[in-house]
C-alpha cells in the first residue's frame, strides 16, 4: 500500500516535470524559429517539434487539472440536493467518464498502430504515432485519476458511515 502510494507520487511528479518541460520547450522552439527566420535561416523543424510537444503537454496538463479539481463544471442545483444525491451524481459521473476514457485509450492505441505509416508533418521516417500516443497515455493517466477519485469518495463515505454509527 505504502509502496503503491510512493510509486503514484513519483508518477505525478514525473508527469508535472514532463508537462512543464514540454511547455518551456515549446516556448524556446517557437522563439528560436522566429529569430532564425528573421536572420534568413528558417528552421522549419522547430514548429513541427513544438506542435508534437503541444499534444503531449495538453493531455498531461489535462490530467493535472483533473486531479486538482480544476476542470470546470456547472453547478445547476446549488445546495438543493442532499448529500446522498450529490454523491450518487459523483459516482455516476466517474462511471461515465471512466467508460469514455477507456474508449479514448483503446481508440488512441488502435490509431497509433494502424496509422504508424502516416508520417509526422511529412517528415520521412518520423511516425505521427508519436503524437497520437499522447491521447492514449493521457487517457490512461486520466482514468487512473478518475478511479482514485472514486476510491477516495468511497472511503470517505465508509468513514462517514462508521462515525455516524459510532455516535449513536
Amino acid at each position: 500500500m505504502v509502496r503503491a502510494r510512493t510509486a503514484y507520487s513519483v508518477l505525478t511528479r514525473l508527469e508535472a516535470v514532463l508537462a512543464g518541460v514540454f511547455l518551456m520547450l515549446m516556448v524556446l522552439l517557437i522563439f528560436t524559429g522566429g529569430v532564425a527566420r528573421m536572420l534568413h535561416h528558417p528552421l522549419n523543424w522547430t514548429i513541427d517539434l513544438s506542435t508534437c510537444f503541444f499534444a503531449w503537454a495538453c493531455f498531461l496538463c489535462a490530467d493535472i487539472a483533473w486531479r486538482r479539481n480544476a476542470l470546470m463544471s456547472i453547478d445547476v442545483w446549488g445546495k438543493h440536493l442532499s448529500h446522498r444525491a450529490n454523491r450518487a451524481l459523483d459516482y455516476l459521473n466517474y462511471a461515465v467518464i471512466s467508460a469514455f476514457l477507456v474508449y479514448l485509450i483503446y481508440a488512441g492505441i488502435w490509431l497509433s498502430w494502424v496509422s504508424r505509416a502516416r508520417s509526422f508533418q511529412g517528415i520521412p521516417g518520423v511516425s505521427y504515432s508519436w503524437v497520437t500516443m499522447s491521447i492514449a497515455v493521457g487517457g490512461a493517466l486520466l482514468l487512473l485519476t478518475t478511479i482514485l477519485k472514486a476510491m477516495s469518495a468511497l472511503k470517505e463515505d465508509r468513514l462517514r458511515g462508521t462515525t455516524r454509527c459510532g455516535a449513536v
Binding site: R37, H40, H41, P42, N44, D48, Q121, G122, I123, P124
Partner: peptide
C-alpha cells in the same frame, strides 16, 4: 506548404523554404 518534399524542391531552386 509544410511538407518536406515541397521544401526540398524550393531549396533546390535557390530559396529558403519557410513553412
Amino acid at each position: 506548404p509544410p511538407a518536406p518534399i515541397w521544401q526540398e524542391s524550393i531549396r533546390a531552386l535557390g530559396a529558403e523554404p519557410t513553412a
